[in-house]
Design a protein around this nucleic acid. Sequence first.
DNA 1: TATATATTTGACTCTTTGGTTAAACTATAT
DNA 2: ATATAGTTTAACCAAAGAGTCAAATATATA
Lengths: 203, 203
Amino acid sequence: MTENDKLTEEKIFESATAVFIKKGMDGTRMKDIAEHAGINKALLHYYFRTKERLFNAVFEKIAGVMFRKFAPVFDAETSFEDKIRFFFREHITFLQQNPGFPGFFINEINRNPERITKFLSNIDIKSLWSMLCEQHCEELRKYNITEETLPQIMVSIASMSVFPFAARSVLEGLFGKMGIDFTQFIEKRKTFAADFVLKALKE
Amino acid sequence: MTENDKLTEEKIFESATAVFIKKGMDGTRMKDIAEHAGINKALLHYYFRTKERLFNAVFEKIAGVMFRKFAPVFDAETSFEDKIRFFFREHITFLQQNPGFPGFFINEINRNPERITKFLSNIDIKSLWSMLCEQHCEELRKYNITEETLPQIMVSIASMSVFPFAARSVLEGLFGKMGIDFTQFIEKRKTFAADFVLKALKE
DNA sequence: TATATATTTGACTCTTTGGTTAAACTATAT
DNA sequence: ATATAGTTTAACCAAAGAGTCAAATATATA
């Protein structure tokens, strides 16, 4: 094995990731993954036993990476405003590099909602949430954010970042007719979304 | 045939809609649709030839209904502000009644992006767009909305309405741990989202 | 080098799947 | 009633799918 050869298992995992993202669990053929990796189909089973195990490995990796991207919002020592700007900048950049993640993720959680229950059970949401509330106690009062509106705001923020990628082909279809470039639209969105949210909050 | 019996073709179409929404094109078995409709599998082919034709019929129906819901935003004779309030109220109510549509739609356009190109070719977006711009010419200037920010705003509005349904199971998972009820969250969202957007726009 | 161990393959199995077909059934018009 | 057209079914088919396995190859180790 030469230095730059990837291990077979890695090669399989990466090919599986690519194909699963493109075709989804149900639309993916083990043969496709094997061909993508340039190996024999039986090797997939040698390393991962079944299609479902291979898929679970891929899904958990992606879900983990996606959720870890939300972490800085909770633990950074910056102001509420800075966190919002930071989030949109970093999260949209991340999605630019992984544009298929939102569509893949939304698809699979809809087909199999139990998956997310299991995944979330590893995370202590409640303490993250109260950490956020305590850390920005005064700011939240200043912005007039209540226990009821905070979830609405958080969901709005996530929506604005994730949705354009999930609905990418629709937007590209619409934009195409109006002379708007999707890539440019996304680049602008990093600051637009932050400004938009902050203006909506500002007293 | 008694009065309240549905025509077989309708029954098939409705069953196909239900199953396709739940399982997606790739995850759906013709057998499942037949069983759901309580008929023989061969009847599906008698009425719709192939799985793909049946799916296309369902997809086009759903896509049509979804996009028609956006129409009042373009042709109503109300103010910009009223349109935003009207949209969130009506659109979220529509999604409450069809909570599976966003997930289904996002999934299928990601698996097969050409589908949306074909679908959008029937709609004259450009003239709808310029209609909107002309109709609210002064308001747009008042709110300081430019040619560049208008698409950002429209996408933000769509995001805020659609995304919570697409990511429903994630939100339910998170909310469950925090004592938040998804149904109630959605009900509140009709006014929250409108207020949020309008505040973000207001000079 | 010889032996044990890990990796890779082609050929195979068994099940599921979309789709077909010929026959049976139903309703209706003459 | 009976011929005709439309509807429904059971039985069938070929292709594709996930998964298996024994043999072959490479790799490490003594």
